[in-house]
Design a protein around this nucleic acid. Structure first.
Lengths: 116, 116
DNA sequence: TAGATTCCTACTTGTACAGTAGGAATCATA
DNA sequence: TATGATTCCTACTGTACAAGTAGGAATCTA
């Protein structure tokens, strides 16, 4: 989602939507969530737009993903009798999270210049 | 699910259901899936029941999980523009799968004796 | 003031998963 | 061979969550 918000400077939701090939209205909602999470900043009115709150190298994939997941799904209680699985599950998610925290937006930025 | 099927010998679906605290009918369906996947064997009629097709040490968690996931979800095409993410996602699932393949049922068996 | 843009809230829809249900097939035993 | 216990098959329901839609208010530049 953010993948193209690192276009350098401020861009309109309209541009993000078309560049990502998703509906305009839908894009609005996502950008709104990201702003509430503090990952991006915004400015209203003409000449408004969105831009990253921190530099691409300081935003990890974990940061972005956490926005979607409602507080890590509140760690739902295991279905009993599966106690030994709980530890394994924890290990998996631990490693996953560690990896996602190491990778920043800068790592996956390739190209795609922004418009005026 | 199988976690208690390693009760040693053949057991009834009824016993599995109560021991796992899930509805009887629901348990039936799961056991049926597992049998179709070749993970367990079964025998009808009185004195029938279910038992593991291989020894607990030869059944990995990956085997069990694969039964649920419909052919790895058919590798749905990525939403475009997210190409760089594809590699990362692959790495994650690779590691996850590797870990799950190393862990067998024998590793997480603890206790819980079967009935006559 | 006017137009452009973000912002908020709520609604609709599609889909996958958990669970339900009815009965047929099969087998041991008597 | 009849009986009852058990697995087996197919289909349905219900529910939670993500994807997407929608209307209009708030805010800013010019």
């Amino acid at each position: 989602m953010l993948a193209l918000a690192e276009a350098g400077g401020p861009v309109h939701a309209e541009w993000v939507a078309t560049s990502q090939d998703i509906p305009r209205r839908f894009c609005d909602n996502i950008l709104l969530q990201l702003r509430r999470a503090g990952l991006i900043n915004s400015q209203r009115g003409p000449d408004g737009g969105y831009w990253l709150a921190r530099s691409p190298g300081e935003i990890s994939l974990a940061d972005v993903i956490r926005v979607t997941e409602g507080v890590e799904q509140a760690a739902k209680p295991f279905p009993k009798a599966a106690a030994p699985l709980e530890e394994i599950w924890a290990r998996l998610h631990d490693h996953e999270h560690t990896l996602l925290r190491e990778i920043t937006l800068a790592d996956i930025m390739t190209s795609g210049g922004p418009p005026p």
